[in-house]
Design a protein around this nucleic acid. Structure first.
Lengths: 206, 206
DNA sequence: TACTACCTGTGACTTTTGTTACAGCATTAA
DNA sequence: TTAATGCTGTAACAAAAGTCACAGGTAGTA
């Protein structure tokens, strides 16, 4: 699995490959495990090799999704923490059993100037995350919840189907279950989705 | 002014200092000038040496502030664009006359692995911007507008005074003038601010 | 002075979102 | 089978934010 990662990232330097072998380790986790907890120090860079992790912020009784980590994705916030010792401001919880590559923070920073491919990797991670977050931000600012919900469904659908409960959707969008139920009903009346139990079928992507 | 920048960023490599001298140029702009326009290609990294620039996204009739650039601050989005040719998704407008350092994108990427101090600079820029944006994001998600407005006033106050019109505040917070006027009035009734013409005095920071 | 362009205040109304409360189903474990 | 738990639907109400309309103030300037 580490080899996949090395390949996917185009880590060509043999020396870096060896360092990765030597200093990183792979851990496995099952659904519901917390990978990162709010207000705890971040000591390793977490890269999801396989599985799915939800990274979110919470606020009293509500939450908002920051991002999902899927196969071969890196937690940008823990990457950021590698460059300055700091506490996490988010939680990360395993949604699908996963294998995680853990790289102690002290290496991540050094490698950044030592290995070109690592430099490219960290820069791209930051860049993509930043652009993604700006989009999220302006959607949150401008789009009514109904549109954000529908767009979210479309983005998360595989084969036009989203297998999530209203509660989950509410969490990820930073709202409440009742509101999601209500909005889904109105979207259904517009013939854009069909609602089932823990399953939503997208009928019309516009 | 370029020397200030070199000093402030701790750019120690003489070779990089020379490259900066050689390839970058400084432009001056007056209030109201657009530095970056939505949907235009980004060709240079913009660093504000002196002055103030407002970077925002717009959406039909409303806007939302992404960030302000003050003395010695770098436009993270144009930095991001240096690593992949792309169009701007924001506008940047001069709010206070300014001097801007322009570095053609092709250098920025190369320097990132060539000069350690440049690498540190770009990484820090990304890191700080990302953290800042995550805060903005979760405030937008969780805080009522009244609290965001008050916090914003506190953050922008110098000597407990904010010299902005309600219209400006509305723009920066992604809302409308009437809403700001109304909220400011209720905050004034709570004796937390005192309203004047184009001037708001903070009385109580809590 | 008179004109213009901003700026602020505010009432009345609408829309969106959140809250409370409850009912009915489905699924799983005991 | 029964109980418990989680999922969905929905009415009724409350609060927050946005919209419309208009009045009056201030400052610059022609």
């Amino acid at each position: 699995m580490l080899k996949n990662f090395i390949k996917q990232l185009r880590i060509t330097e043999e020396e870096l490959q060896e360092e990765l072998q030597k200093y990183s380790n792979i851990t496995v986790h099952t659904k519901g495990d917390f990978i990162i907890k709010n207000d705890e120090y971040i000591k390793v860079l977490k890269i999801v090799l396989r599985g799915k992790v939800r990274v979110y912020q919470d606020n009293e009784d509500r939450e908002i999704l920051i991002y999902y980590l899927n196969d071969m994705e890196t937690c940008t916030l823990s990457l950021s923490a590698c460059f300055e010792d700091c506490k996490s401001t988010v939680n990360a919880i395993v949604e699908e059993d996963c294998a995680i590559l853990n790289i102690p923070v002290r290496f991540v920073k050094d490698w950044n100037f030592k290995y070109k491919s690592w430099n490219t990797f960290t820069t791209n991670t930051f860049r993509e995350s930043y652009n993604h977050l700006i989009n999220q931000y302006s959607n949150l600012a401008f789009q009514p919840l109904k549109d954000r919900l529908f767009d979210y469904l479309v983005s998360k659908a595989s084969n036009f189907i989203v297998k999530k409960s209203h509660q989950q959707l509410a969490r990820e969008l930073g709202t409440t279950r009742e509101v999601v139920s209500r909005l889904l009903k109105t979207i259904e009346k517009e013939n854009k989705v069909k609602l089932g139990l823990k399953e939503i079928i997208i009928l019309d992507k516009n």
